[in-house]
Design a protein around this nucleic acid. Sequence first.
DNA 1: GTCTATATCCAGATAGAC
DNA 2: GTCTATCTGGATATAGAC
Lengths: 199, 199
Amino acid sequence: MGRNKELNQKTKDERRGQILSKALMLFATKGLAATKITDIASAAGMSQGLLYHYYRSKEDIFVELIRSAFERMNTASLELEKLPLPPQEKIRLAIETLLQGLNDNEDTGRYYLLIAVATASEAIPEAAKTIIQKENLVPYEVITRIISEGQKDGSIKDYEAKDLALVFWTSMKGLAIHKAVHGNKFKMPDADILMSMFI
Amino acid sequence: MGRNKELNQKTKDERRGQILSKALMLFATKGLAATKITDIASAAGMSQGLLYHYYRSKEDIFVELIRSAFERMNTASLELEKLPLPPQEKIRLAIETLLQGLNDNEDTGRYYLLIAVATASEAIPEAAKTIIQKENLVPYEVITRIISEGQKDGSIKDYEAKDLALVFWTSMKGLAIHKAVHGNKFKMPDADILMSMFI
DNA sequence: GTCTATATCCAGATAGAC
DNA sequence: GTCTATCTGGATATAGAC
């Protein structure tokens, strides 16, 4: 009995995961408003009606994805900061990991694209705006701290740390968008190019 | 008689310009699908009905803006290339002009944002896709040529010219998006930071 | 040229059968 | 859990009066 309940919960979670994955692709390439609930349902292989068994609305799905995107990005940022590496190596690792992620895992790029497009748009649910406002700064702050540390020991150039952090993230998001458009034809730039802003 | 016709045409063009300017702001901040035709009409101070006197559809307005955005961007690129300056000075001028434009003229940032978002989106009119496909490469090609020239005389670093051009433009578009979100709170980074990838 | 009113359509969400 | 059928609302575009 309890076992059945757990099993049901598990398959339900899996189903939700499928829906989220398809919705991520659609939201990233078409945006929230242009993505129809039927698009998501048919991409996930179910009827519109059934989709409402798993999510209460299109906006709920969107908010869930935004939450998840920031959780991944911010967790990764904070993990990076904790690594026992000198600051400039953290920056290099961040650049290489992000470029690699964009190349290898399609969802990685889509999460960044989703954040980039959602952050730029006013036409998103209030709940999503709240999350963005609360979470958006974390990666900037982490990178700023790493850069400041590297500037103290002289291993990172002496531009304003905030400026460097800004250019770091805007460049990454720009690359994510480009990747989303050109897909596999897109050859990653050499990480050294980006590194040369820092060292 | 002919004079009246000209005058009418002129005020009509002005009215179209007002509509385009308001639509640009809305499309840039909300996207095509989330922008309602009534939003545009009321922002331009007219009824929905009247708007259809000037444009046949919301998509027509969008396509017109895309066309105009690329015309500006590509003209500016080609003008830059023709200037009697050494290659690395052209790069520096491009960066400074773009950062300045983002700072001073609100529409400049919006045009870049419109291009960035439209290029990333599948949910745009076919006519817009055609324009993008045809025009999108011009700035990349111009910058690539300038970089190659600078590499011949040794004044620009020897990374792959195409990679450098890609990072150049993706960074610029990333900054444009950031500017659109944070508006006036947004302090431009030092142009030297971006230059340090090239020299 | 400009407005209000309206026809038409389409998408989000619900109801109810299986 | 899953589907089909349907209600409802809202947005595009048109018609017609001024």
